[in-house]
Amino acid sequence: MPAARDDGARGARLSRQTLGQRFAAYRLHHRQMLAAGFERLRRYPLATLMTVMVIGIALALPAGTLVLVSNAKSVSGTWQGAARISLFLKQNLSDSAVQQLADSVRAHAGVASVKVITASQSLAEFRQHSGFGDTLSLLGSNPLPAVLVIRPTNDYTTPVAAQQLGHELGVLPQVAEVRMDIQWLRRLQAMLDILHRAVLIIALLLALAVVLIVGNTIRLEIENRRTEIEVSKLMGATDAFIRRPFLYHGAWYGLAGGVMAWILVLIALLLMAGPVAHLASLYGSRFSLSGLGFEGSLVLLVSGIALGWLGSWVAVARHLRAIEPT
C-alpha cells in the first residue's frame, strides 16, 4: 500500500515541529492550566471559600497546636537549663573540707559550676527569708548543713543525664542528701512529648482529611467536565494532558487552604498574646509567644500545596480512567 505510506509521510511532515517548539507549547500549557485553575477557584467564590475554609481549619489545628507545644517546650527548656542539683552535706564538715569537696566536685565533667553555701550562710539566708530568725537564735548550734549548689553542663541538663550526675555525686561520703528540682520538669517534659506525639497523629489524620476534601471537590469538578474529558480523549489527549488542569486546581485549593491556615494561626496567636504576656509578667518573665516563623510558614504552605496536589491525584487516578468515550 504505497499510497498509505505516502500519506503517512505527508502527515508527519505537516505536523513536524522542533523539540524546542514542542517543549514551549508544553510549558505554555502548564502555565495556562495554572492560570485556569486559579480562574476556576475565582469563578465560584462562595463555594471556593467554604472548601478553602475547611482545608484551612484542618491545617490550622495541627499547625497552631504545634506552635503552642514548641513554645511550651522552649519555656520548659530554659527552665531545664537552670536545673540545679543541691548536695546537702553532713553536719560536721569544716568550711575548708566543704571548700575542698567543692573543688573536687567542680572537676567532674558534668559540672558547670558549683556554688558553696556554708552552714553559716545557710543560717543567715534562712533567718532573712523565713521569719523564724528569732526562734533560730534559741538554738545553741546551727542546725543547717552546708550546701553545694551544682549547675550541670549542657550535656547533663537532660533529665536522665542530670539524674545520673546526681547519683554519682550522691555516693560521695560527705554528702547527706541529693535534691534535684528537675522531677517536675521531667514530668512536664514527658507530658509535652505525649502532647507533641498526639498532635503529630492528629496532624496526620487532618492531612488525610485535606486529601479527602480536595479529592472530593476535584471529583465533582471531574464530573462537571465529563464531556470535555471525553471529547479530549477522542481528540487524542493523553492522560497527563487531561490530569494537568485538575492537579493545578487541587494545588491551588491546597495553597489557598495553607494561606487560610496561616491567617487562622496568626489570629489565634494574637488573641493569646495578651493573656500569655500577663502570665509571663506574673513570673517576672518577658516571655512572649513565638509564631510560625518563616520556616514554619513555608512548611505550612508547601504542605498545603502538596496535600491539595495529592488529593487531586487520588481523585483523578480513581475517576479519569472510568471516563472513556462511548
Binding site: 505536523s15 515541529q17 517548539q21 514542542r22 507549547a25 500549557h29 471525553e230 471529547v231 481528540m235 487524542g236
Partner: peptide, 23 residues
C-alpha cells in the same frame, strides 16, 4: 460533541493544543 462553554475558536483549536502544536 462540541464544548458548549467555549467559543468556536477554542473548540476547533483543541486537537492542536492536545497535540502540543506551537501556539
Amino acid at each position: 460533541k462540541l464544548l458548549h462553554d467555549r467559543p468556536v475558536f477554542d473548540n476547533v483549536a483543541l486537537p492542536l493544543i492536545i497535540a502540543g502544536v506551537a501556539y
